[in-house]
Amino acid sequence: MRRLIKRILTTGLPAARLSAISPPQEETGAPATFRSAVGGAIAVRHVDAGSCNACELEILAADNIYYNLARLGVHFVASPRHADVLLVTGPVSRHMVTAVRDAYDAMPAPKLVLAFGDCAAGCGIHVSNYATVGRVADVIPVDIVLSGCPPTPLVLVEAMRRLAGKK
């Protein structure tokens, strides 16, 4: 226990801060109604709709202490009923279509859908075929598209910063 406390006391800050990295170019346009409704704290429900898991790793990384997504008031919730933003990854496998629609329908308004990664955007390596729809926008309305294979945590942090209207 003594070592644990010592370790906590001696853990330094990450050497490089986020400002040192150039921000991505994605434009996000959160409507004013959404911004006032979420009150600066955004609840996110993630749905993997057939991704390869690399997008999930980067979403998790955005929540680590280096990117510290929580500092923007962004938190991940277990139920779509508590969510303001649906964060969807993957080319939407046909087997996930029902689950994606159900999650979207369960969310209260106002709500936004963020398609995360090239597959979700429809420009990834997994194209539409007998098993996949091909992009999230063919299943539910998409407000924001973040590209990358996978998009880096910084892309997500920047998108969320704009959504939350924070500097």
Binding site: G50, G90, S93, H95, M96, I125, H126, V127, N129, T132
Partner: peptide
Amino acid sequence: GYAHKGAEKRLADLAPAEGIRL
């Protein structure tokens, strides 16, 4: 099976340079 994407079917049609990316 929820994440089934038909990857093996596609790999059969891809040239190796593209197949390795998939």
